[in-house]
Design a protein around this nucleic acid. Structure first.
Lengths: 159, 159
DNA sequence: TAACCAACGTTGCGAGTGCCAACGATAACA
DNA sequence: TGTTATCGTTGGCACTCGCAACGTTGGTTA
């Protein structure tokens, strides 16, 4: 039975992961994620990925509450609060209590945050190229489609 | 321009991730990884994934040193040591100094560890099914192939 | 109006991962 | 011989993710 995962013959057998792991989609995703994290870390501060996610969301959807941010990103309110506090300290976002609903914090991106977002974008683009280097353009598109299908079909939030 | 990631029209626009993230392979891998982690957490202790990786490696390749384990799994010596200590405390592996090279720890799986590995395997299989549910069999195979290509082409170890 | 419930931001906590640096012990090599 | 390299171990650091609780605010219903 072939699960479609054939290793190159030139692969070093001494460092090959076991078949039980190679067959796991969750393990593969974990490894690709770590790979992306390492590549990002060579160009960005360790918080770059989370910062990018939050900044990209407020930039696309306009000012949002922190809870809404969590829903867009599939993250807990708590996690969002941590990232938002960090971005607020760096003046990359502006937090103001919503006038129509004083429970909410309106999170808006600042000009400085916009510049930071652009920096993150260019660095991230380079990482994507490195990551998808072994794939053809059509293969990369296929991969994104398949991963997107999985993400669309699953609830984004914990609990 | 279509990058192959079309969202369903029935998708809730209030919780959709921004386009800048949807276009990122590294972000998709991150989300699928978190998804797998959550699903695993419903059936296994939080350490299940790491335990499974180490146990599967020693089971397939026989007794190994901890450094070799790290090379097979793409993890630091330190990380391996932590997992191995945990498994050793639970009598799931047996650590003994290698007689031919006393620098090394020979890590072998115990009968108890083998049973634990089998439990992890069945729980993990269920997670894979849930994770790949929105995909057809051929699509899932494609996905594994593409992710495998990426992993094969990149160095497994940090630094 | 008053009582209840839900949502929000915030704080604190815990577990897990992954990396780096350093140490002493051991092995291999010059 | 001395030097270099590898190993296991310890300790530390930063980040992520999640849960629970608190006080505040808004909406709903009796």
């Amino acid at each position: 039975m072939n699960n479609g995962y054939d290793r190159s013959v030139t692969e070093n057998e001494l460092t090959a992961p076991p078949a039980r792991l190679r067959a796991l989609l969750s393990w593969q995703a974990n490894r690709v994620n770590v790979l992306g994290s390492r590549l990002t870390g060579t160009r960005l501060p360790a918080t770059g990925r989370a910062d990018f996610a939050v900044l990209a969301t407020v930039e696309e959807y306009g000012p949002l509450s922190q809870a809404d941010l969590g829903r867009h990103l599939g993250l807990d309110r708590n996690t969002i609060n941590g990232i938002a506090s960090r971005l607020d300290d760096g003046s990359h976002i502006l937090r103001a209590t919503d006038t129509t609903d004083r429970r909410r914090n309106t999170v808006a991106i600042t000009p400085l945050g916009q510049r930071y977002l652009d920096q993150l974008q260019t660095a991230t683009d380079t990482v994507q190229v490195e990551l998808a280097a072994p794939l053809s353009a059509t293969e990369a598109a296929q991969l994104q489609t398949l991963l997107g299908k999985i993400l669309d079909a699953h609830p984004g939030l914990p609990g």
